[in-house]
């Protein structure tokens, strides 16, 4: 009788997110990664925008029109929030990389500071943009 190969059994993947309660630390960790991927797509929009500007006023107007549409504005707003989240989260990571801020209380304090800071900076950026755009 052949023994069943242990490799055939589906192995659980770590971390076991299906049984793991979300916490501020884990949510911000994956949020930093997701916002980075979102910003990669935003970088594609940046290059399209620059290429359109180089191509001439007509192409530039098409891209500006697309960005000014409600869908374009939703995408830009999402990119703005992803940017400030990734910026604040990235600075938090750089502080950790220098060896500071590992006490549990500081981890939660800096985590909530990232949440509050990225929301506040996104709102401020859009208020400034709306005021200057009119």
């Amino acid at each position: 009788m052949m023994p069943t190969s242990p490799a055939k059994r589906p192995r659980p993947l770590s971390p076991n997110i299906q049984i793991y309660r979300p916490q501020l630390t884990s949510v911000l960790s994956i949020a930093n990664r997701i916002s980075g991927v979102v910003l990669s797509l935003g970088a594609v929009v940046l290059v399209i925008w620059l290429l359109a500007a180089a191509a001439g006023p007509e192409a530039y107007a098409v891209v500006q029109g697309a960005l000014a549409s409600w869908l374009g504005q939703v995408v830009l707003f999402g990119c703005t929030f992803a940017f400030f989240l990734h910026l604040c989260g990235g600075i938090r990571h750089l502080v950790w990389d220098m060896g500071y801020g590992y006490e549990l209380s500081l981890i939660y304090a800096s985590g909530w500071a990232v949440v509050a800071g990225s929301v506040a900076l996104t709102v401020l950026a859009w208020i400034a943009s709306l005021l200057l755009g009119d």
Partner: peptide
């Protein structure tokens, strides 16, 4: 980001 906010609504000539 600060520059783009300042350039909000500017036409092609201004942007160039």
């Amino acid at each position: 980001v600060a520059s783009i906010i300042a350039q909000t609504g500017s036409d092609h000539a201004t942007f160039i």
